[in-house]
Simulated scan of single mutants.
Amino acid sequence: MPDILTIGQVAERTGLSVHTLRFYEREGILHSPVRRGASGHRVYSEQDIEWLTLCMVLRASDMPLAAIRHYTELVREGAGNEGERLALLRRHREYLITQMANLSECMDLINYKVGVYEDLIDEGAPDHSCNPAPLPADEEPG
């Protein structure tokens, strides 16, 4: 693996577009300022790939860019603000726990409806798409 990567190589390795990489740079999301090679082109390191991977996980988990930027700023500052970093990540973890619980409830309802339609199809019942099976009383929407 080369120590110096082009923006195209980073895009290929991370799955991010060149446009997104430039956007992240403008938004202050990258851990270190992007260096420039002798030709003036952006050059990246393996550490940049590792940081981008973390940022991609945070974005995929719905962390807002502003929070990622703040986390990045804290990391750049170095030692002494670990408590603030921890608090930021704990808040995001709580958000994810809530989201996972909500998604689990959604999955329960969808699994129920899939079962209803599978039973209808297995029984050879006519198409009830205009009049779907009602929800049980305890699952009626609020």
Results as ranks from 00 to 15, higher is better:
residue 37 G to W: 08
residue 32 S to W: 04
residue 115 G to W: 04
residue 52 L to K: 00
residue 68 I to Q: 04
residue 6 T to M: 07
residue 12 E to V: 01
residue 104 S to F: 03
residue 48 D to H: 05
residue 111 N to Y: 01
residue 101 A to S: 09
residue 106 C to A: 15
residue 138 D to E: 14
residue 134 P to S: 13
residue 102 N to K: 12
residue 101 A to K: 14
residue 114 V to I: 15
residue 131 N to I: 09
residue 45 S to D: 05
residue 45 S to Y: 00
residue 98 T to K: 11
residue 137 A to L: 11
residue 49 I to Y: 02
residue 31 H to Q: 15
residue 31 H to D: 11
residue 125 A to C: 12
residue 80 G to K: 09
residue 79 A to H: 11
residue 137 A to Y: 03
residue 53 T to I: 00
residue 19 H to V: 11
residue 105 E to W: 07
residue 70 H to D: 12
residue 10 V to L: 07
residue 130 C to K: 10
residue 123 E to F: 03
residue 104 S to A: 14
residue 103 L to T: 12
residue 90 R to I: 06
residue 52 L to Y: 00
residue 55 C to E: 00
residue 93 R to V: 00
residue 96 L to P: 00
residue 109 L to G: 09
residue 140 E to F: 03
residue 47 Q to H: 11
residue 102 N to W: 05
residue 67 A to Y: 00
residue 91 R to W: 00
residue 66 A to W: 04
residue 68 I to K: 01
residue 24 Y to I: 00
residue 79 A to Y: 06
residue 96 L to K: 11
residue 31 H to E: 10
residue 106 C to W: 03
residue 134 P to Y: 07
residue 84 E to Y: 06
residue 14 T to V: 03
residue 43 V to G: 02
residue 118 E to M: 08
residue 36 R to F: 05
residue 86 L to E: 13
residue 48 D to P: 06
residue 58 L to N: 05
residue 38 A to V: 10
residue 33 P to G: 11
residue 49 I to N: 03
residue 71 Y to R: 08
residue 28 G to H: 02
residue 76 R to Q: 15
residue 34 V to H: 05
residue 45 S to K: 04
residue 73 E to I: 02
residue 62 D to V: 01
residue 34 V to F: 07
residue 29 I to Y: 04
residue 56 M to C: 12
residue 111 N to K: 11
residue 63 M to R: 02
residue 108 D to C: 12
residue 81 N to R: 15
residue 140 E to N: 06
residue 34 V to Q: 04
residue 6 T to W: 02
residue 112 Y to E: 06
residue 37 G to D: 15
residue 27 E to C: 12
residue 75 V to P: 06
residue 132 P to N: 12
residue 141 P to H: 06
residue 100 M to Y: 05
residue 20 T to K: 02
residue 63 M to G: 08
residue 133 A to P: 14
residue 85 R to H: 06
residue 71 Y to G: 01
residue 105 E to P: 01
residue 21 L to H: 02
residue 22 R to A: 06
residue 80 G to V: 10
residue 104 S to H: 13
residue 65 L to W: 06
residue 81 N to Q: 14
residue 6 T to R: 04
residue 80 G to N: 07
residue 89 L to R: 04
residue 107 M to Y: 07
residue 67 A to C: 07
residue 92 H to T: 02
residue 120 L to N: 11
